[in-house]
Write a protein that binds this DNA or RNA. Structure first.
Lengths: 203, 203
DNA sequence: CATTCAACTAACCGTTTAGTTAAAATATTG
DNA sequence: CAATATTTTAACTAAACGGTTAGTTGAATG
């Protein structure tokens, strides 16, 4: 029962994540989420609580997955450069529909971020800082402000991941002004960002 | 009359911008905007139209200011490096409350961006591309994907500008894990980003 | 068979929200 | 001044929304 209930909630949270990602906390409709999850609205309230609780569960799930996979990827890499590449690649690979959620939360001042998810975000920042400090200690990197680097990586990845529809609209309006450079995959963009950050860190 | 009405609308748009920045299109309340602007709701509807029209006017105004000031700053700079510095500095300086608006719009897939504002965004991308291509032609920069660089700069600046409340909350929860590096001004962060991007562009 | 209990549902409720209206006030003009 | 056009207002509406309620189901328990 606990197992089954857990699985069902997982399905619900995945569906809700898409809805919250597309519409935001204020824009998403509980009825729409319940319908998409094949649930009666009252069942949803019975299982989770109110809209805010559902949102927090979704956010924590998405961010938890991101930090777990990123820590795992960095953990298997050896050396500051390989760890940096793993960090950027893992964040890019496991963003999923977390990018719109994150962007909206930042815009909101983080008003919907539960404390536990906040700790996740702190861990991600700390992880990159460790990588950069280790690289600086070994002489591979020059000393930098790790938080600013973090903003450039995470900001760049999230913005790129989320703005595909805008790129396409711009391309449709200005076919001559758009090059193939605008239409690479997120993985390719992440690879380039690693390359550029590496250049920025060169002593 | 036209002049006075224009000025009044400017006041209204500035107030509405703050509300939309804080709450988003779906979260902002027309009554709250009208009250904050010292206007009756019907007056707002008479002057502007519906909520969507108000939002589009706000967005265009904010983005228009950003692109205008950025183009002006880059225009007075000489040489690719100085122009790059001007670009980053001007975007940072004139973000204002545009950062949350932009982040939310990207998260939304740009569904609320009017065509004219979309052209502004295209111009900003094109401006940076010109700078980077000129630098590559003169041998100052190595060839890069200008759009990815754009994402890192604009994503980094917007994320940094908007996430101050989150930083403070993290700092309050983990006083030991937070360094002074997290609490520099946006201008200082922009200066560092210029430095890092310059490193990334070094041939 | 009677009872219990978690899980679920259809229908409903009070509030909020974007948007409207009709009339009063104010300015503009002939 | 009178007539006409423009603004402003309080009050209102219809619909949408988050959340609740009373009641059902079906399996476990005794």
């Amino acid at each position: 029962m606990s197992q089954e209930s857990r699985t069902d909630n997982d399905q619900l949270l995945a569906v809700a994540a898409e809805e919250f990602a597309r519409k935001g906390l204020a824009g998403a409709r509980v009825d729409a989420i319940a319908a998409a999850a094949g649930l009666n609205k009252a069942t949803l309230y019975y299982r989770i609580g109110d809209k805010q609780a559902l949102y927090e569960a979704v956010f924590e799930r998405e961010l938890g997955g991101l930090i777990r996979e990123t820590e795992a990827a960095v953990g298997t890499a050896v050396g500051a450069k390989a760890q940096l590449r793993a960090f950027i690649g893992a964040v890019a690979a496991s963003l999923g529909c977390a990018a719109p959620l994150l962007l909206r939360e930042v815009a909101d001042g983080g008003s919907g971020i539960p404390d536990h998810a906040l700790d996740h975000m702190g861990k991600l920042v700390g992880l990159l800082r460790q990588i950069l400090e280790a690289g600086a200690a070994s002489g591979e990197f020059r000393p930098v402000n790790p938080f600013v680097i973090h903003m450039m990586i995470v900001g760049g990845l999230n913005l790129y991941a989320a703005n595909a529809p805008i790129r396409e609209r711009v391309a449709a309006r200005h076919p001559q002004g758009v090059s193939a450079a605008h239409f690479i995959t997120l993985e390719q963009a992440a690879g380039m960002m690693y390359d550029y950050i590496l250049g920025a860190l060169r002593p």
